[in-house]
């Protein structure tokens, strides 16, 4: 199937993501989707009644969960991805301004390659995945820790799962509303005007193809 012809010839485009970043995102998103869907089949009565196969769902859920950080760890071999991780980690003065404006639902939200909301999302979901893995392992290998830990792990795993699903829904909603940002992850480049408007402080690297 061919995609509709890109208008890149008409309007200038700028490189945003490399192939490595594209695949890290796609693999992580797929694993996360499998995790969430199998969680639904284990947890929601109507899905459990529809799907059944509890032992299979448990196995798929455990393995998709434990593999979740692997694409990112492999991606650390890419310099472009490491540079983007640094960008996500560091918050400048403009990020505070962005957050203040966003909280008050005002305009004037200066952003670098990633805006402060994207940075917070990245850090939060990374931490959440680690907590889900830790609590999940306590429930998986029940002999690892005393019972109170397992009960506590179940409690945290359940409630954090609910939060993660809400936050991911927000992430998907943001992407749904902004086709150009999705095109950036899919094709690697974005419209230059879009970049200037959404990420005015983003400065291109010397060699973005690496």
């Amino acid at each position: 199937m061919s995609r509709p012809p890109e208008r890149a010839t008409a309007r200038p485009r700028v490189p945003r993501f490399t192939r490595a970043e594209h695949w890290v995102h796609r693999a992580t998103a797929t694993l996360m989707a499998v995790c969430v869907l199998t969680a639904g089949c284990l947890y929601l009565p109507f899905l459990a009644e529809l799907v059944g196969r509890r032992a299979l769902m448990v196995t798929v859920h455990e393995w998709s969960g434990i593999l979740l950080p692997v694409p990112l760890l492999l991606g650390l071999g890419s310099r472009a991805l490491r540079a983007d991780l640094t960008r996500l980690n560091r918050f400048g003065r403009h990020d505070r301004q962005w957050l203040r404006a966003a909280l008050r639902r005002r305009g004037g939200r200066p952003a670098g390659k990633f805006n402060a909301g994207q940075k917070l999302y990245a850090a939060w979901i990374a931490g959440a995945v680690l907590v889900m893995m830790g609590t999940g392992l306590l429930m998986w290998f029940t002999h690892l820790a005393p019972l109170v830990w397992r009960t506590g792990a179940t409690f945290v795993h359940d409630w954090l799962a609910l939060t993660v699903i809400v936050v991911i829904a927000g992430h998907v909603w943001m992407a749904y509303r902004d086709p150009e940002s999705r095109r950036g992850l899919r094709t690697g480049s974005v419209d230059a005007h879009w970049a200037r408007h959404e990420h005015p402080l983003w400065k291109q690297e010397e060699d973005p193809t690496r």
């Binding site: 560091r90 670098g112 850090a123 506590g152 945290v156």
Partner: peptide
């Protein structure tokens, strides 16, 4: 490391560590 964009306070790392601390506290306080 991301050019000028990659400078500033490492809030991202603090959020990750904060999540881990919160998770551990949640298990303990469950």
């Amino acid at each position: 490391g991301g050019g000028e964009d990659g400078r500033g306070t490492p809030i991202g790392r603090r959020v990750v560590l904060g999540m881990l601390a919160g998770g551990a506290a949640g298990v303990a306080a469950a």
